[in-house]
Nucleic acid binder design. Sequence first.
DNA 1: AATTTAAGTGTATTATTTACATTTAATTAA
DNA 2: TTAATTAAATGTAAATAATACACTTAAATT
Lengths: 222, 222
Amino acid sequence: MKDHYQKHVKALLAVDCIIFGFTQDNLKILLIKRDFEPEKGKWSLMGGFLRPDETLDEAASRILQKLTGLHDIYLDQLRSFSHPDRDPVDRTVSTAYYALINVEEHNKELTKKHSAEWFNIQDIPALIFDHNEMISQAIKRLRYKASTEPIGFELLPEKFTMRQLQKLYEAILGQELDKRNFIKKILSLDVLIKLDEKDMTSSKKGSFLYKFDAEKYDRFKI
Amino acid sequence: MKDHYQKHVKALLAVDCIIFGFTQDNLKILLIKRDFEPEKGKWSLMGGFLRPDETLDEAASRILQKLTGLHDIYLDQLRSFSHPDRDPVDRTVSTAYYALINVEEHNKELTKKHSAEWFNIQDIPALIFDHNEMISQAIKRLRYKASTEPIGFELLPEKFTMRQLQKLYEAILGQELDKRNFIKKILSLDVLIKLDEKDMTSSKKGSFLYKFDAEKYDRFKI
DNA sequence: AATTTAAGTGTATTATTTACATTTAATTAA
DNA sequence: TTAATTAAATGTAAATAATACACTTAAATT
């Protein structure tokens, strides 16, 4: 009987995206300056509302694309946040997603249009609602992920040096790693292809570039 | 401006609970026979709708208590399921939680009242909506959890034998384990207290009972 | 006293992780 | 042209963790 349903409240369904990027040896998150009430002018995660004909995954994907121009991006559902008062305007349950993007590839005009900026994860400002909590959980999740499977394919440019990869891991894990042990470990995973090319920007000697072997990388996906 | 909100659809917010228990060396899930439409008479997870004044966590807790009489139970949010057509009556987003309970402690009259029954995880029947998918993801998550932190405090009776603990791990991981290696490993985690008492029901010699050291166990919580 | 049953126990091997310092290739400056 | 500079590249020993594997023991039953 429909009654069983109708006595229950409905709520707005939102999606918020924690967009991770990696530049200048730092793990960063893309935040926007809100251009609408409530909390207009404050920093927040990029978000939006669920549409009648889409899943939450699709909504997250759409919202990510709206801000970055990117599609087919790594996106993972973090969890749903549901405190009755989290949004002062109306009861809204928000499902947080985290995305890993290659900073070089995103559409900078789009992010500029949304007044978006990259923040080091150590320097996240006070955000609206429960967005700081969302970020904190996303970082935790990313750390966990990095310790159990290879990561970086999504965050690094196509070709990268060992040093870049190590710096990425150090930024995610929040700790320094031994260079020799790191290389030994990452090579043992057998997901990298060493190229004949060198990156000459970082040293006189130059350092070899690597790329990920997509098939071998995917074996690790849980 | 409120407009930014009002043009968006609202949906019903549901919670579904994957309730794990362990009896007769088997990992089981508690399912109910639905006593209301749609899909009345079919097996399903225990669920309910979010109330205006509670969080999803609280709703899951309330729903779990309604069925089992238990409170202060281990509950973890799995993820939200949002396919537009997942519930034929009305757009409903459901957030799945999994719970670990001690089967001996739940209120059997309550479960009987809800026509609830325990099913081995190998023998889950066809369920309504996307509930089979929820279970499949919950088992995956439980396996992952079991491989990274001690588990069992919530699923076993207060006092248990090494054999029971091993059988629990075998049921969760879906594979047999070597007795000596298992004991070595679990003792090295330093979360067990060996009691002077023996369980005499399983053998002539009897086997020592253990209990968990709650404080040491909690160190492993992520 | 012999048999039965599950509990309880140890060691050797292999794999993984950790700690740690020097050499090399190329450019720049003297 | 030689020396100095810079980051890249490389290996080994020790410690820890994971795996494979089989016999002895305690108590009850026959």
